[in-house]
Simulated scan of single mutants.
Amino acid sequence: MFSVASIQDDIYIVGGCSSLTHFGRVDRSSFKTHKGVLVFSPLTKSWRKVASMRYARSMPILGISEVSSDFSIVQSHQHRQERHFPRSRIGGVSDVYEDPHRLSLRRQYRNAFDENDTSLLHGRKSHRFTRQKNDQPNAKGCKRFVLVAVGGLGSWDEPLDSGEIYDPISNKWTEIQKLPIDFGVVCSGVVCNGIFYVYSETDKLMGYDIERGFWIGIQTFPFPPRVHEYYPKLVSCNGRLFMLSVSWCEGDGQIGQRNKAVRKLWELDLMYLTWTEVSVHPDAPMDWNAAFVADKSLIFGVEMFKIFGQVLDFLTVCDVSDAGTNWSHISRNQMTHELDASSCITKSLAVLHL
C-alpha cells in the first residue's frame, strides 16, 4: 500500500504499511503504517533511504513538480488553517482558496503577468515558495524537482486531509496547508503546469499552487459521469489535464440491449474549466483499480484482474498528440506469471527515461 513516483533517474517509494503474517493471514496486532521513503536507482540497481515524512501514510497521492533552482520552502508566520470550502468562481473568492479561473489564466500566460504582483494573494498560507532576486539557473543547469504527498490513510486507517512537500536538495519534508474538511477522501492526483490537482471520492476537484503554497477550489462543467465503484484517475500530458472515468453506455440503441460500462478519457479545458470526451478505452473495465501514468504525449495503462481463477493483465497506451487519440495494446498477460492475485489491488506504475 505504498505509492510510487519517478524523479529523473530515480523511483521514490513513499509510505505504505506492513504486518507480520502467519500462513498468509494479516496479524493486526503488528500492523504498522510507515513514514519512510525509499529511493531506487535503476542505473546502479541500488536502494537508499531519504528523510521520512512527518506523518505515517499508506496509499498517499503523490505529485512531482519541477521548480526553479532558487525556490525554497519557508514557513509563514501566520499558520492559520482555513478549513471551509471555497465559494464558486461566480460568487467570489474566499480568503485562502483563490479563484481557479484567474489562476489557470495566470498559469497559461505566465509571461504576461508581473511575477511580483501580489493582488491574487491574501496572505493566509501555511507554507509557500519564495523566489530570490537572482533568477538565474544554477551553474550546472540541473533541473530541480519537489515531491508532494497528500492524503492517504493514517496509522488507524483514518483518511488524512493533510499534505507535505519534500525537497531533495535539503532532504526535508515540510507540512503544507490542509484540504477543506468537506473535500472528502483524496483518490487521485497529478501535477499540471505547476499545480497539484487532486480529486476526491465525493467528486470534488482542487489544485495546490506549489509556488505560492495554497489550495485552489475548482468547479468544472459539465462533470463527467461515472460509475460509483470506479474512482477517476487524473493524468497530465504536456501541460494538458486528463481524467479516466468509467461510465454507463447504452447498448447500441437496440431494444432490450443491456447497458455496458466503458472507460473514457476526458480532458479539462484549463481556461474555461469544461470537460470534453477525448477517447474510449478498448477494454471493458474489469479492473476497478487500473493504474495509469503519462509521459510526454503518451498515457500508459495497466489493468490486472482475477477471473475464473486466473489473473490477467493488459498494458495499453494512448498518444494524445495524435488526432485520432486511439488506444492500442502493448502486451497481454506478460506480468501475471510472476505476480499473485494481491497485485491486482496493490500495483503501481512509473515511467523513466534511462
Rank of each mutant, 00 (worst) to 15 (best):
S6K: 05
I13Y: 04
S18Q: 10
S19D: 05
V26H: 01
K32P: 00
T33M: 08
V37E: 00
P42Y: 09
T44W: 01
T44A: 13
K49W: 06
A51H: 10
M53Q: 13
M59R: 09
G63R: 01
S69P: 07
Q78Y: 03
P86K: 02
S88K: 06
R89P: 01
G91H: 10
S94N: 09
D95E: 14
E98F: 03
D117N: 15
H122V: 00
R124S: 11
K125G: 11
H127C: 14
F129V: 03
F129A: 05
R131A: 14
K133C: 01
V146I: 07
A149I: 07
D157G: 01
E158P: 03
E158N: 11
S162F: 03
P168V: 09
E175A: 13
Q177I: 12
I181A: 06
F183Y: 04
N193V: 04
D203W: 06
G207C: 04
Y208S: 10
I210S: 09
R212I: 00
W215S: 08
G217L: 14
F223D: 09
Y230D: 12
Y231T: 03
Y231K: 06
Y231E: 10
V235W: 08
L241V: 02
L241S: 14
L244D: 05
S247N: 09
C249A: 13
E250K: 15
G251P: 04
G256L: 04
R258Y: 13
N259F: 03
A261I: 07
A261Q: 15
L268F: 09
D269L: 03
M271K: 14
L273K: 15
T276F: 02
E277H: 02
V278G: 00
D283Q: 12
D283W: 05
M286W: 06
W288E: 14
V293R: 15
A294Y: 12
S297I: 12
L298H: 10
I299S: 06
E303K: 10
I307N: 12
G309P: 09
Q310E: 02
V311R: 09
L315I: 15
D319E: 00
D322K: 11
T325G: 04
W327I: 07
S328C: 10
Q334S: 14
T336L: 07
L339S: 07
C344Q: 11
T346A: 13
S348W: 00
S348T: 05
A350L: 01
A350W: 07
H353A: 10
L354H: 13
